[in-house]
Nucleic acid binder design. Structure first.
Lengths: 344, 344
DNA sequence: CTGAAAGCGCTTACAG
DNA sequence: CTGAAAGCGCTTACAG
């Protein structure tokens, strides 16, 4: 019942009395095999539990059946959820997901210079990373279709899926303004290495624009490192100032959760003394009763994966840019919970 | 400066004026190459940004440089943190991580019957999954070393790293007993398909044993699905009973967080009316001021990865079982926060 | 230490 | 429709 360790195409060919060329054609559904022969081959393959060797297939011009996914890190809700979305789609078609994490600038540099994915994957998905021109060039040298998720949207016809981060920030700040706040601060988050991530820039831009649109001036902004602890620190900075703003817009929910922790420890009640709002709709936002602007994360992963499949199996690329840019911008949505209320 | 699309071993050989055999040896660090020649080859390879074709390497008997990691899902803190730990180690040695998610029994069945990792990886890491004898057999047929993380510890000489889940439960319940609780309930979590996961069984066993050791009898246990919502539901079930216990031991922090949410909505104060304790030290536990028993998760991933490296590069397997079983049991640690207090 | 050659398991023109 | 054969890019005995 259990097949021997190594069944190859030759075995299948012998069992069905044809050449391996025909087996190869039949198994891939290629034309040039009579229905009878095809059936015979297919059942022989099934009987032997035959699995094509991806190595050999790839080596002779076929595909690897693997897609590289590049993320800054896995142990963060956003990225693991994107990954889950990608995995959802890949599982159904049998594509293998090769995970690449590039947590810091050293790793990132090494990654782009060594191009470890080269010849190893049929396509790539790159999440959120801010890329230099050089890095983009290197990426192109991998020579496979690439889909981007979040972060900076390419200007050319490369695929991208994400949200409008500036709009998300505006939605959050707009809500604070609408319920009466006039003194709104922001806790902004930044990369350790001061690399300008598109998301960060868009969110603070949205903050300033919405503040300006509301006729407010000179808002306080404190900048901290990404992470819950960064958020805590940010709120400590705000608390150390002469006057606490009536509302705080946080770069993201993780920042906001850290901010809430500091407030709880300091005995400042939310939303009575200060309103707090984030962005993302992290699972903990619900637990902490945090008002936020939700973005569909898993769906971004799914769409990116489908885009990859499309590029892999879809129509061959015609020269010239496509009629519509291959960008998908998913909607964000204000989720009002208990951490925001009109100022007293 | 920028290398052409396809640099192969022949190119490197030409650039360094040797045969591809020597290149192959030099690049793999195999013996039989003079230091001078090796250096020349290495710098030529670097200059050309050469990357070995894993396909060709594997096809001719070498390794793929890939390790399969099997997890139930990625979008859960525990598994994404394990993954991060594995990635930490793999990154430093250039191993590729092929991610396989088997969220439900259908996927799991398909995974073990199709053995999609076969001929694709040099080793495997399997996280937490409860495996049937059949599944273990199938896993062996992949024919590569396999390391297990969490869940059931194999009885033979296969590698395993994890914690003592029964002890963790005992630590949690022991704390409740120590501060004076006599009426302790448990919210237990279970698989959708009622598959007995080793972790779940060990935790409830630890609960019952610790309760018995304390001379208490007949504790209330409610069983819910894994997830924060399951935890909420579990606490609703406890609240609907005639009398609320003075303390609740939750299968894990996610269950506990859901339970806390229900209590907050119901207006039951913690720890004044009821104490709550979990297991894991999920990042949100700190945010929610939840007492818990911490386990080192990322470290489990790191150890599993190092174990894989060891099996891949280390001493060849001598016949017969090794002297000490290749098991690593990491310590767990009680973390007291604000969700537990003596009963009133 | 070094190289020529066989072979890994496929795919794909190229002939029949 | 079918098969013989070349070739993908490596590794590994086997000779020098």
């Amino acid at each position: 019942m259990i097949p021997k360790q190594t069944v190859n195409m030759t075995d299948v060919a012998q069992h069905s009395g044809v050449s391996i060329a025909s087996v190869s054609r039949a198994l891939r559904g290629a034309p040039g095999v009579s229905p009878t022969t095809r059936d015979r081959i297919l059942s022989a393959a099934r009987e032997l539990s035959y699995v094509v060797s991806p190595e050999a297939s790839r080596l002779s011009g076929g595909l690897t059946g693997r897609v590289g996914v590049v993320v800054p890190r896995v142990d963060a809700w956003f990225f693991s959820t994107i990954l889950a979305g990608i995995a959802d789609e890949f599982d159904t078609v049998g594509l293998d997901l090769v995970l690449c994490t590039v947590p810091d600038s050293t790793t990132r540099h090494r990654f782009f210079e060594a191009l470890p994915l080269r010849r190893k994957v049929d396509a790539m998905v790159v999440c959120s990373l801010p890329l230099t021109a050089r890095e983009h060039t290197r990426l192109e040298q991998v020579g496979v279709p690439t889909v981007f998720v979040g972060g900076h949207r390419p200007d050319d016809d490369r695929s991208w899926v994400g949200i409008d981060d500036e709009l998300a920030a505006r939605q959050a700040v707009g809500h604070l303004v609408r319920i009466g706040h006039r003194d709104i601060a922001m806790i902004q988050a930044a990369d350790d290495a001061d690399i300008p991530w598109a998301t960060d820039q868009a969110r603070i831009r949205g903050f300033h624009r919405q503040i300006a649109d509301a006729g407010l001036a000179d808002p306080t902004v404190v900048t901290v490192k990404w992470s819950i602890d960064g958020g805590s620190r940010g709120m400590e900075m705000l608390l150390s100032r002469p006057r606490l703003p009536t509302a705080v817009f946080c770069h993201s929910d993780e920042i906001a959760l850290g901010a809430l922790r500091t407030l709880r420890k300091a005995g400042v009640s939310v939303p009575q003394h200060v309103s707090v709002i984030g962005v993302d709709d992290h699972p903990s936002a619900d637990l902490s009763d945090l008002t936020t602007v939700a973005q569909p994360v898993r769906e971004q992963g799914r769409i990116a994966a489908r885009d990859v499949l499309h590029r892999l199996t879809g129509e061959s690329s015609v020269s010239g840019p496509s009629v519509t840019p291959p960008w998908t911008t998913l909607p964000t949505r204000l989720v009002i919970r208990g951490s925001t209320a009109p100022p007293r």
